[in-house]
Design a binder for these strands. Structure first.
Lengths: 214, 214
DNA sequence: GTCTATAGAACGATAGAC
DNA sequence: GTCTATCGTTCTATAGAC
């Protein structure tokens, strides 16, 4: 049972506050109050506010994206050279993220809120962090989608993957909004139900008839 | 030909900078430099930074949401009491926003980037602004979707509308990312193509088979 | 590694002359 | 309506004692 050290305290506090008020809307001083550490400790351990954000992201995204790749690679091995069915690709992509987004020990919805927010953050430094973190997943999943949808032109596939990222991101970043909007009818805590619904929606969308207008 | 006044100069500069670096990441001082006005002028015309943001949002959203409502009401009138087909509902919702997001005289992608960003902004004041602006559209379109998809349980509809908002928002807020991601294959400037693709994707997603798992 | 103290700059907002 | 000047606050970052 290892004790929670200063560094982890800072990461936890920063994750929470960055998600709650945004990286720009949060000062290091707010972070150190919540983390119960000294301001200088942040600069000692991370060097700068930007590096704190990068560490917060990497702590969750490195294992998350590794899990995604492990899942799809297992499916690929199980099927030899043949294409992995669309539903399984989507599930490999969606399920680990959604389970993480509902695991209170791992930041729960807090982290996903921050992640969704970073995606709309135009700050070039933040964009570069995201590209770094997601390049492996993008490189592996894009060809998998292409193999699962052999009739779909590459242009259309890219558009649909863009729609997919939006739907997925918004679902994870803003689950609680749905509870309010549906008047309590929808329960975002039902992780497996959410995965099934999202996979079914995305499968149908990706398989839609290609529109005529060009 | 009326001259561009101080108030409009401030709105234009704020729109651009808020979209570029976020409302929190932008200072009023940066705004007044770009608008070539005095700092006190901002407080004279708007009272506070928050009110500037509200005015920036309202300037585009009031006519946009009015256009959406006008379109769907025209469809409803044309069909008497019968349900408006799903594709036409989606087009009424998507097309005005997407055309706005590509109209350089009206902020172009700049404004949509800001809007997408505000959606992930947890600041309660900003959330309240969005709720105010979108309540009319939500109240009118939700029953329309229900009528167009009579077999779909309400819970499932709410989930799918949530996915829809994500796909739509991300498409408008971050169109340029797709150009990079697709290696230049996709052209987000093709507004009508984007509308057709988004409507086709969403139609299929909304009509997907309801998943078994509950 | 952890602290206090502080430098140095930027912030939102306002007072009051014109 | 528009300006200058400035108040009071907060920020990131660092220097240097322990």
């Amino acid at each position: 049972m290892k004790p929670v050290d200063t560094k982890t305290h800072i990461l936890n506090a920063a994750e929470e506050l960055f998600a709650l008020r945004g990286p720009h809307g949060t000062s290091l001083r707010q972070v150190i109050v919540r983390a119960r550490v000294n301001l200088a400790a942040v600069h000692y351990h991370f060097g700068s506010k930007e590096s704190v954000l990068e560490a917060v992201l990497a702590r969750r995204l490195v294992p998350l994206n590794a899990e995604r790749l492990a899942l799809i690679e297992a499916h690929e091995r199980a099927r030899g050279g043949r294409a992995v069915p669309l539903e399984l690709i989507l599930e490999s992509l969606v399920a680990p993220a959604l389970r993480l987004s509902r695991d209170p020990r791992k930041g729960g919805g807090t982290f996903m809120r921050l992640l969704g927010r970073c995606f709309t953050e135009p700050d070039p430094a933040i964009q570069a962090m995201l590209t770094r973190q997601f390049s492996g997943v993008a490189d592996h999943f894009t060809p998998a989608f292409r193999r699962a949808l052999p009739g779909l032109p590459a242009v259309e596939l890219f558009w649909r993957l863009h729609f997919l990222v939006g739907a997925m991101g918004h679902t994870m970043a803003d689950a609680e909004r749905l509870r309010t909007f549906s008047g309590g009818l929808c329960n975002p805590d039902d992780t497996e139900g959410t995965i099934a619904r999202l996979v079914s929606f995305l499968t149908a969308g990706l398989r839609a008839k290609v529109p005529e207008v060009k």
